[in-house]
């Protein structure tokens, strides 16, 4: 029964990739990739039933509201959407979430965060981008800071991080800055991912059956 489900139905999902391949390229086990598939199917059929995660579905999952826009959620969606075709496919979902796994290499987390903050994808985090991100955060929170305070915080952060003093933060400067301030990448680790199989226990039984049949 398990095999029937896995071979005939999953292979019809656009962008479906073999869990053993995905497990070999990420910190996830095959069972965990199978559990992520269950999560993926739930998310990807929440609005448009096509087995692909659209931005609205991503926003609905994050905020319980399909229309809520958020600069950072937009950037994360764009980074997950590696093929840049407007949807997150299963392989993209698993590989991207792999970076957020507690056991993923620190280097990968640092690099992903850099790309997240490099809003205009110039290869650098620029002062204007940093200020734009601070303003975006203030816009969605109750935190009120005067423009002078914002300028002062952005200036100081830039002075500390831009060690080459060329007006932009490159990847090496970012890496050095994060090493000094590890809290900066705490968002890059999702403890949930260590328990993903437990979060979807119905899948474990099915996966065990499939493995026995193999």
């Amino acid at each position: 029964m398990g095999c029937y489900f896995s071979t005939s139905k999953k292979s019809k999902i656009p962008g479906y990739e073999d869990p053993t391949v995905l497990a070999s390229e990420t910190p996830f086990t095959v069972s965990e990739v199978e559990a992520l598939y269950e999560l993926y199917m739930k998310l990807s059929n929440s609005i448009i039933e096509d087995g692909l995660i659209h931005k609205e579905e991503f926003q609905l999952a994050l905020f319980r509201n399909r229309n809520k826009r958020n600069l950072f959620a937009d950037r994360i969606f764009d980074l997950f959407d590696v093929k840049r075709n407007g949807v997150i496919e299963f392989g993209e979902f698993v590989r991207s979430l792999g970076v957020f796994h507690p056991n993923a290499p620190l280097e990968d987390k640092i690099a992903f965060a850099f790309r997240l903050y490099d809003l205009r994808q110039t290869g650098y985090i620029e002062r204007e981008e940093l200020k734009e991100m601070v303003l975006a955060l203030l816009n969605e929170s109750d935190l009120v800071l005067s423009d002078d305070m914002i300028e002062s915080i952005v200036d100081k952060t830039f002075k500390d991080a831009d060690t080459k003093d060329d007006g932009k933060i490159d990847q090496d400067e970012w890496k050095a800055f994060v090493t000094q301030h590890p809290s900066l990448i705490k968002n890059m680790t999702l403890p949930y991912l260590k328990d993903i199989s437990m979060a979807f226990p119905s899948f474990i039984a099915r996966t065990e059956v499939e493995e026995q049949e193999l």
Binding site: L43, A61, R75
Partner: peptide, 24 residues
């Protein structure tokens, strides 16, 4: 004033991917 701009940014709800794992 030891506030770091990146620490402030990290408070954004857009960074919290836990919603993906919550039962809807």
């Amino acid at each position: 004033n030891n506030l770091n701009a990146f620490d402030i940014i990290s408070f954004s709800s857009g960074f919290d991917l836990s919603g993906l794992f919550e039962d809807k």
